[in-house]
C-alpha cells in the first residue's frame, strides 16, 4: 500500500516545479469558471436592463411596438402629470411608514432573539422569523385577506366584543397595504438586526446599568448607537423592498390604490406602452437609489461613518 503514495509524490516532483502543490490544486484554468454564470446574468439581466434604458427614451406608437425615435417625452409625461407624481409620492410614503413600523417591531423582536436566555428559544424565535419569509408573498397575502375582510377574523372579533356595530372597512385601504407589507418585510428586518445585535457585547448594557442608567437610557444611549449600522442596513433593505412591492398593493389595496411597481406591470402588459413602462421602471430604481443615498448621508452626519 506504500507503493502508490510514494509513486504519487515522485510523480508530483517529476512533472511540476518545486513548491507547486498549490499550483496542482487548481482545478483547471480558473478564469473560465464564472463564465457560464456571467453569461446567465448577462443575457437574463444586463442586456434586458440596457434594452429598457433605451426603450425609456423611445417614442410611443400604439400601432407599432418596435423601438423608434429618441425623446425625453416619457419622463416629461411622468413628471408633468400630477396623477403620476402622486403615485410616486404614495409609493415613497407607504415604503417609509412600512420601514418605521418594521423598525418599531423588528428591534424588539431581534433584541428578544439576540438576548434569549436559552439556545432553544433563540433558534425557535429565529425560525419563526425565517420560515414565513420563505413561504412566499402569495400565501401570506391570502392570510391577510382572510384576516382583514369585512367578515374576517378581525371584524368578527371587533363586533363580538361590541367595539364596533358595523364592520370596519380595512381591506382595500392603505392601512391593509401597510399592515401586510410590514408583516411581509419584517423577517428581513429581524434577520438583519439580529446578526448585528449578536455582535454587541451585553457587557456594554450591563456597564450602563451598573453606572446607574435606567433601562430606557441604557437602551437609547448605549445600545441603539452601537446597533446603528444594523438598524441602517435593515431599514434600507425594507425601504427598497417596500418601494418595489407588488402583491400587497394589488390585492389588499384594490384597483383604486396605485403604487409604482403595479403600474410598471399595467403599462407593459395591459397598455402595451413599453416606452412609458421602461421610464417608470427607471424612475422607480432612481428614486429608490436617491432616497437611500440621501438617508445614508443624513444618518452618517448624525452617527458618523456607518
Amino acid at each position: 500500500m506504500v507503493e502508490p503514495g510514494v509513486q504519487g509524490v515522485s510523480l508530483a516532483s517529476d512533472t511540476a516545479p518545486p513548491g507547486s502543490v498549490r499550483a496542482r490544486l487548481r482545478p483547471g484554468p480558473f478564469p473560465v469558471l464564472p463564465v457560464p454564470a456571467l453569461l446567465l446574468v448577462g443575457v437574463g439581466l444586463i442586456l434586458p436592463l440596457i434594452l429598457i434604458a433605451r426603450y425609456s427614451l423611445a417614442e410611443f406608437d400604439p400601432a407599432d411596438i418596435a423601438l423608434q425615435g429618441l425623446t425625453l417625452e416619457n419622463y416629461a409625461k411622468f413628471f408633468g402629470d400630477p396623477f403620476y407624481r402622486e403615485v410616486l409620492g404614495r409609493t415613497v410614503a407607504v415604503a417609509a411608514v412600512t420601514t418605521l413600523c418594521c423598525l418599531a417591531l423588528g428591534i424588539p423582536a431581534a433584541y428578544a432573539i439576540s438576548r434569549s436566555p436559552s439556545a432553544g428559544r433563540r433558534s425557535l424565535l429565529l425560525l419563526l422569523a425565517i420560515v414565513p419569509l420563505l413561504m412566499g408573498n402569495a400565501v401570506r397575502v391570502v392570510g391577510w385577506m382572510v384576516l382583514l375582510s369585512d367578515g374576517g377574523v378581525l371584524n368578527t372579533l371587533l363586533m363580538a366584543s361590541g367595539l364596533r356595530e358595523a364592520p370596519l372597512r380595512i381591506l382595500y385601504t392603505s392601512t391593509a397595504v401597510i399592515v401586510s407589507l410590514v408583516a411581509v418585510l419584517l423577517p428581513f428586518m429581524v434577520i438583519t438586526l439580529q446578526s448585528v445585535f449578536d455582535r454587541i457585547n451585553p457587557a456594554f448594557e450591563e456597564a450602563a446599568a451598573t453606572l446607574g442608567a435606567p433601562p430606557w437610557t441604557a437602551f437609547f444611549r448605549v445600545f441603539v448607537p452601537l446597533a446603528m449600522p444594523g438598524i441602517f442596513s435593515g431599514g434600507l433593505l425594507v425601504f427598497i423592498l417596500g418601494m418595489n412591492a407588488y402583491a400587497s398593493p394589488v390585492l389588499l389595496g384594490g384597483p383604486a390604490f396605485h403604487m409604482m411597481a403595479p403600474m410598471v406591470y399595467e403599462q407593459a402588459i395591459e397598455a402595451f406602452n413599453w416606452p412609458f413602462a421602461s421610464a417608470l421602471a427607471f424612475i422607480l430604481m432612481a428614486a429608490t437609489l436617491v432616497l437611500t443615498l440621501l438617508s445614508g448621508r443624513a444618518l452618517e452626519k448624525r452617527y458618523g461613518r456607518l
Binding site: 433584541y111 400565501v139 433601562p215
Partner: peptide
Amino acid sequence: RSFPLAMGTLAIAAFALLVLPLATV
C-alpha cells in the same frame, strides 16, 4: 419594569404578525 414590558409586548406583536396569516390560512 416598563422597559422589558414594552420590548416584550412589541416583540410578541412582531412574531404574531409573522405567524398569524399562515396559521389563519
